[in-house]
Design a protein around this nucleic acid. Structure first.
Length: 625
RNA sequence: GCUUGUGUAACUCAGUUCGGGAGAGUCCUAGUUUUGUAAACUAGAGGUCAAGAGUUCAAAUCUCUUCACAAGCUCCA
């Protein structure tokens, strides 16, 4: 049997004349139905052997498609022209009746176009990615094609029951609702956020205001929602984070590659992968081909690995890419600031490994990498809540291994377990950040994937000379770069809530030293100091505007300058600088060299980029108010 | 995507109830002031009142549609 399902704004049809000797009796000659899933169906010769089975599968398929497009209104439209081998009319009518009856038992509103008539029809199909789907199936269950498997696994995911626990470093499992969260308030928020999905806040996220006010990032109304613009200071911060994460991955052994951002929708391997998920892709048409924008680096790397000749000696093979961008057309209502985007920058390092033992060894190495990357960037263990997701079976067999990870983090984690494996991974963890509105978002994550090596036909030659499919680890050591920025800004917002000054980590601060001359007379001397700092790879700038000192200080503080130095007669005479360090009450007296050393020490090990704007404030454009 | 709310100058906002001159502060420009650790003074420039349509003699204001943002829901490969 073949069906073609069209999600349509309306369909209207009119029976013209008999197409077979004994057509169905006409209830109404013509009809117009708005907002429906129109299913054209052809029953085929092979369905004769077991029409009930075919009908049953047809019902399942229609239900599946209907739930994907969220449509309760269904029009069954017998349409023999989909096939070259039609069944007898009687069989087709039987199948049609069963399908109609079964669907009516559920919550669907079912319409039928008359069977056995030549009909004229008009239809307006919605344009969205899932609006046109065809399915094919036969009466024999063993002949179910791959699409069927995919929808099955989707169905299972929906029915999946999760078992939630808190796992403490001593190895004890606790009920999420009974655990004593004293000292772990954020874990409580995270656990209930995950489990209960409860949220009760009505504020705007704090980082959105900050990202605008500091002229880092802004919305771009001329683009699609969730596609942002980065001002020079925001671009600097993003570039530094990108570089740091990439450096660390390469130091770990990552091999950097670059892959296309768009892929053919009809590529056989990708098609299967796409069908697994509700359509959230951006689509592009070029000539007559349809492409989707990548939503992860997986495809490009897997397709590359598929074509590579790989020996077991090369394993673990770590392919790395920083995707600028990955695209996901998230629901518009879900987009917020830097937290949830439609275009985002994702560092993605996959590791191809020979077997589960090697996978677990590598998993540990990458766990350490992720934690250290986040810590060094300014996100501490205390800011993170870890979730680990696996099957009950894997947990029981590898309890020590998992406990080892929990001990590295040094605090209780949220554990989610399933009875059986449904997803492509067998083990997954994430580090989540809980923000000022108690919302949780994932940063680092790693998974052990035991399906895609085979699905993509990736092979390596093992010691025994045989070709085998590797397991694949998917890791983002930091999570999306934008989300790291979000976490750092939200962290600053926590400080502000406590009445402290919001700060950026020194290595990321667009202005590390603001030089403020007291008057025009000291401009030249102050400019000399600024240049000296710049020469020493410190991001220093000069407030050369003719404003009062108090005003310049105020503005420097509002820009979150890490340090501010006022230059006048005293400094010129003594050579000492009165350093105002953000967040500290008193001025610290330092020589120029001491100031440079202080900054070098504080930013040690982190990348450096020069000032993103002219050093003179008078020459800078103002991007936001 | 759904529900509710918001949208006035580069920024923060008043004006919308009950239709009739588009305003304030900040920022920017010019001049005065030459300043010592969080806001000097004077003047000037700056707006398609989100966009489009409708009602009206007259619309920022009333009605409808669209877009953007926010909150909640749903979702999150």
């Amino acid at each position: 049997m073949k069906i073609l399902a069209l999600h349509s704004d309306f369909i209207e049809f009119e029976a013209k004349k008999k197409a077979i000797k004994e057509p169905e009796e006409l209830k109404n000659k013509s009809e117009k139905i708005a907002e429906s899933l129109v299913v054209f169906m052809s029953v085929e010769e092979r369905d004769e052997s077991n029409p009930e089975s075919t009908a049953k599968q047809c019902v399942e398929n229609i239900k599946d498609i209907a739930s994907q497009v969220k449509e309760k209104n269904i029009v069954l439209y017998p349409y023999v022209h989909l096939t070259n081998n039609p069944s007898k009319p009687k069989t087709a009518l039987d199948v049609l009746d069963i399908v109609e009856g079964e669907l009516k038992k559920e919550e669907y509103k079912v319409h039928r176009s008359p069977f056995g008539w030549y009909k004229s029809f008009n239809i307006k199909v919605k344009g969205h990615p899932l609006s046109e789907l065809s399915r094919e199936f036969g009466p024999d269950d063993s002949k179910e094609d791959k699409k069927e498997e995919e929808t099955d696994s989707l169905k299972k995911e929906r029915k999946l029951t999760s078992y939630w626990h808190i796992l403490t470093p001593d190895g004890n499992l606790h009920e999420v609702s009974k655990f004593n969260y004293k000292g772990h308030e954020k874990l409580k928020k995270f656990a209930f956020y995950e489990k209960e999905k409860s949220r009760a806040v009505k504020e705007e996220p704090a980082h959105v205001k900050i990202m605008k006010k500091l002229e880092l990032v802004d919305y771009e109304p001329a683009s699609d929602g969730g596609n942002l613009r980065y001002y020079p200071k925001g671009r600097l911060i993003k570039k530094l984070i990108e570089e740091y994460v990439s450096d660390r991955v390469i130091e770990y052994g990552g091999v950097e590659v670059e892959t296309p951002i768009m892929y053919d929708m009809h590529h056989p391997t990708l098609l299967k992968y796409l069908q697994r998920f509700p359509a959230r892709q951006y689509q592009i048409e070029s000539d007559k081909r349809k492409f989707f924008l990548r939503f992860a680096a997986c495809f490009g790397q897997f397709l590359m690995a598929h074509d590579a000749t790989i020996s077991y000696r090369a394993l673990p093979l770590k392919l790395y890419e920083l995707t600028r961008y990955s695209f996901r057309r998230e629901q518009s209502g879900e987009l917020t600031g830097l937290r949830r985007l439609r275009a985002f920058t994702m560092p993605d390092v996959h590791a191809l490994v020979a077997d589960i033992d090697q996978a677990m060894d590598e998993f540990k190495v990458r766990f350490d990498l992720s934690l250290s990357v986040l810590n060094n960037m300014g996100v501490e263990n205390n800011d993170l809540e870890m979730a680990l997701r696996t099957t009950k079976d894997f947990f029981e067999k590898n309890k020590e291994f998992i406990l080892g990870l929990v001990k590295k983090l040094g605090k209780p984690i949220l554990l989610e377990m399933w009875d059986e494996r449904i997803f492509y991974f067998i083990l997954k963890y994430e580090f989540n950040f809980v923000d000022t509105l108690d919302k949780a978002s994932a940063l680092s994550t790693d998974q052990i994937d035991i399906e895609n090596g085979e699905r993509y036909g990736i092979e390596f030659t093992d010691k025994d000379g045989k070709l085998k499919n590797p397991l694949i680890l998917h890791c983002s050591p930091s999570g999306a770069i934008e989300r790291v920025m979000y976490a750092l800004l939200e962290k600053a917002a926590f400080d502000q809530k406590k009445g402290m000054a919001g700060t950026l980590p020194l290595w990321l601060a667009p202005t590390q030293v603001r030089v403020v001359p007291v008057s025009e007379d000291y401009m030249e001397y102050a400019a000399g100091i600024t240049d000296e700092l710049l020469k020493n790879k410190v991001r220093a700038d000069l407030d050369d505007r003719s404003l009062h000192v108090g005003k310049k200080i105020r503005e420097g503080e509002m820009e979150w300058c890490s340090t501010i130095v006022v230059i006048g007669e005293k400094e010129k005479a003594s050579g000492k600088l009165p350093v105002r360090i953000r967040g500290k009450k008193d001025l610290v007296s330092m020589s120029l060299k001491e100031l440079v050393d202080h900054i070098k020490k504080e930013t040690n090990g982190m990348p450096f980029k020069p000032l993103p704007l002219p050093k003179e404030l008078s020459k800078r454009p103002i991007f936001v108010g």
